[in-house]
Nucleic acid binder design. Structure first.
Lengths: 165, 165
DNA sequence: CGCCGAACTGCATAAGTATGCAGTCGAGTT
DNA sequence: AACTCGACTGCATACTTATGCAGTTCGGCG
């Protein structure tokens, strides 16, 4: 009964749908699973609430309360991305709370525990301007090669936090 | 209609109940509001699911999924300025062995393993003078915003190690 | 002292979410 | 081609959570 080396998916657009769900939840306010169903249908994902309920569990979405009632949020982390740049962009958008430079030193504030991830993404990107990084728990120290380099870096990183997916 | 300077509560043990709820959620696995109702009743808080639902919103509890289904989690605590300062004072008195500055960089030597705690306390205090901190195992690197800032910081931190509780 | 309004709660129920079950689809096998 | 198996889904429904409304309690005030 071991036999089949199979693996993959069934007859589904599941991965794409999951990406869409994450984007929706990050992008706007989703209060109910029906909201999600509606948005997904609008985007040519014909699904029902039951499936969305399962998707939400699989994606590990959080349900939180704000002034207007419960809503869904994306989890803090996301794994495996192909291109390091995309990964860095994501890391910045998702985990970075602020960036500032003092002379050659860049201080990147992140969500608690996320500094290693962000630092890793930075390292991976192999910026010419970066000599190296040190990641603590919620702060990454970036050492720039020169002042102009620091300036370029700041601009570049800041712009990343605003580009869209 | 402004008149009454009043404020207080109604006829309730609400605050105590809220504390109990937080303790319960932090301490064990609470999967449903009924779980909570049961535990609360056991502890002499006669409430119903409706009230618990409201409490959960007020406390900002999170609903997450694990392998066994949805459950509640407590949000990460938030401290006020007073508590934060006290926390820093304690951290310094108990775990810090020495502080020195080299230019904009402050090096704080701590007992082994205590750097993250001290760094956290420093971050929490949100000193104007501090750009950020990075904690290793027994050393915290503090980056000051300027030289005067560094100097002020040194004085301030040193004085803290001597104030009493 | 009786009235008034705010805080708080339970009840009943609306609103929303999770899930057992049965059916579909495709890939790999026989 | 027919069979088998696992991934995936919708339906119907059980289960949970949220909330409109009405009632209680308490403190302040006329």
């Amino acid at each position: 009964m071991s036999a089949t080396t199979t693996r993959v998916i069934g007859p589904a657009a599941k991965p794409a749908r999951h990406r869409a769900i994450l984007a929706l939840v990050r992008g706007g306010v989703i209060r109910t699973q029906e909201d999600l169903v509606a948005e997904l249908n609008r985007r040519r994902f014909p699904v029902t609430q039951a499936t969305v309920s399962r998707d939400i569990r699989e994606l590990g979405l959080l349900r939180v309360h704000d002034d207007a009632g419960p809503r869904y949020m994306a989890p803090v982390a996301e794994l495996d991305v192909e291109q390091t740049m995309q990964r860095l962009r994501n890391a910045i958008r998702e985990h970075v709370q602020g960036i500032e430079f003092v002379d050659l030193l860049g201080i990147v504030h992140t969500a608690p525990g996320c500094a290693p991830l962000v630092g890793g993404a930075l390292d991976g990107s192999r910026f010419e301007e970066v000599v190296g990084t040190i990641a603590g728990d919620d702060t990454v120290l970036v050492i720039a090669r020169s002042r102009p380099a620091a300036q370029r870096l700041l601009l570049r990183l800041n712009s990343m936090s605003q580009e869209d997916a």
